[in-house]
Simulated assay, not measured.
Amino acid sequence: MRRYDLIAFDWDGTLFDSTALIVRSIQRACADLAVPVPSDERASYVIGLGLHDALQHACPDLTAERYPELGRRYRHHYLASQHEISLFRGTLEMLHDLRGRQFLLAVATGKSRRGLDEALAHTELQGLFDASRTADETFSKPHPRMLQELMAELGAEPGRTLMIGDTTHDLQMAVNAGTDCVGVSYGAHESAGFAAYAPRHVAHSVADLAAWLSQHG
């Protein structure tokens, strides 16, 4: 018997190799506004959060009324280079295998709905996911609402749901929602911080993740 009915994936840094572009876009947006440019570590920490929360953490000295301006500059830099990024190698094959095994698949991401839909349209993933939630549709991670809404929509119980992500925000959301989680070490956050959330596995590549899911999913 399989362990899970629903497998929910984070997007950036988990399925999509976009960490470096997000970090660079945050830094360039801050430079545009002549505010302190965050380090790579500080900028990568915010990946997975909703845009407002991410920019607030990455640029704490900026006044709240300038967040929309910073957000526009971030989107400008990200969209200008998004054609350079792609799925991690092996991701498409892994997802097709899971679909063939009748798992429900979902996306739980800090991206906007527009951003996710644009990404899905260009990465041969349309139709592979049964549902998705973005940060502009519900509460941002690590609040559990995103996962709770996905489980309710797809009729899955917390004990039969697995969340997979590359950040502590993803794993904390899973803990808050009462689901199991798996961390991936090839994304935005150092995997040393994952232990506090008791992930069932930490995958060091997509191949590693796919192999674990074939045995334990």
Score class of each variant (00 low, 15 high):
18 S>N: 07
83 H>C: 02
126 Q>N: 07
157 E>A: 15
102 Q>T: 10
170 D>A: 01
24 R>A: 15
121 A>I: 10
80 A>H: 14
18 S>H: 08
129 F>M: 02
27 Q>D: 14
159 G>A: 13
74 Y>C: 04
110 G>L: 01
4 Y>L: 01
206 V>F: 09
199 P>A: 10
2 R>N: 12
200 R>S: 09
121 A>S: 09
135 A>D: 07
151 M>E: 12
179 T>V: 15
160 R>M: 11
196 A>T: 08
201 H>K: 07
141 K>D: 07
172 Q>G: 02
91 T>S: 06
18 S>R: 08
28 R>W: 08
216 H>S: 12
97 D>M: 14
151 M>P: 01
158 P>M: 14
140 S>I: 09
31 A>F: 07
193 G>K: 09
92 L>F: 00
112 S>V: 11
39 S>Q: 06
83 H>S: 01
126 Q>H: 06
55 L>D: 01
106 A>F: 02
54 A>E: 08
111 K>E: 10
61 D>K: 05
3 R>K: 14
40 D>K: 06
93 E>H: 05
167 T>M: 05
196 A>M: 10
41 E>Y: 05
176 N>Q: 10
81 S>D: 15
51 L>Y: 13
215 Q>L: 14
47 I>S: 02
97 D>E: 15
84 E>I: 07
69 E>R: 08
144 P>I: 07
211 A>G: 08
175 V>C: 14
202 V>Y: 10
68 P>L: 00
7 I>H: 00
74 Y>K: 03
147 L>E: 03
195 A>Y: 11
128 L>M: 04
165 G>H: 02
113 R>H: 09
85 I>T: 06
217 G>Y: 14
200 R>D: 10
79 L>K: 13
201 H>D: 10
10 D>R: 02
49 L>Q: 06
144 P>G: 05
202 V>W: 08
129 F>T: 00
51 L>D: 03
74 Y>H: 14
47 I>W: 00
119 A>M: 11
107 V>W: 01
78 Y>P: 04
130 D>W: 01
79 L>D: 15
107 V>P: 00
77 H>N: 08
54 A>L: 05
45 Y>W: 08
48 G>W: 03
55 L>E: 01
48 G>S: 11
98 L>V: 02
40 D>E: 14
212 W>C: 03
67 Y>M: 07
168 T>D: 02
78 Y>D: 04
